[in-house]
Amino acid sequence: MHGFTMLPQSQLRPLLDAYAHAVATRRRIVLAGAVLVLAAAALSAVGAEVRPHVFWANLGNFGSYFDRLTQLDTGARVWADPVSWYWGLRRWSVQLGQTLLIAYVGTVTGAALGLAGGVLASRNVTPFRALRFAAVRVLEFARTVPDLVFALVFVVAFGLGPLAGVLAITLHTAGTLGKLFAEVIENIDMKPVEGVQATGGAWLSQIRFGVLPQVLSNFASYGLLRFEVNVRGAAVIGFVGAGGIGQELIVAIRRFYYSDVSAMLLMLLVCVMAIDLASERLRSRLLAGDHGA
């Protein structure tokens, strides 16, 4: 007929039945999952006091908020008069610079601590079992507590200003990088380490000459990635008084200085994107160099 022969009905039937059964079972599982998710969504909608009518009624506010963001006090559009839009350019630049420095210093210090923590927390090179357990727990704690919460506590302890921000970012970075570093170290080739050990090298020289050369480019790439995240983090850490442009931004938002808000947000956006781009280049160079070696 068509160049192929159909199985006789008596043999085809059970196969088709089995197929229908398999599909039906899968459908049931998917359906049950969907119902579960929807039920959870409904429950949390009650918990989160979702009010769709308020949302619809005020959705216009959302549009007009952005409209007001692009308006100067005089009513003119911001791009018509960039000079008065960016009246505080010098001040904001200084604060943006401070934010970048907070992110940088916090990332570097955090990476150094994370390196120490990562070495201690990795299964294959840690000197003592008990030390490893402690290091893993400390890193976990530093990672789980949001940096803003750290910043809140540090503002009380160290006073208002960038120091609190730097420390908060340092701690959080040490936690996240420490875990990543430990994972990288656990995957290294142990032969160089054994070689150093065989020539009589102490634990520290084993780390220095056996472990570090293998992992450094990987660590640098992770560190850069973390720096990108920390620039964003440093910008909002100012919200609680820990220095940088965030301090100025939240005042502007709270007091409805619309054109200031848009000016600072735009500066921040451009800055973040430039850093993302630069670090993406650097990272691909780092990893490429790694493969070439």
Partner: peptide
Amino acid sequence: RSIDVLVWALIWINVVGLGPFAGVL
């Protein structure tokens, strides 16, 4: 993506008022 969740929260508070709904958005 570049705008932080806290900034979004502040914007949405202006739209739907203080409370968890602004957090969801």
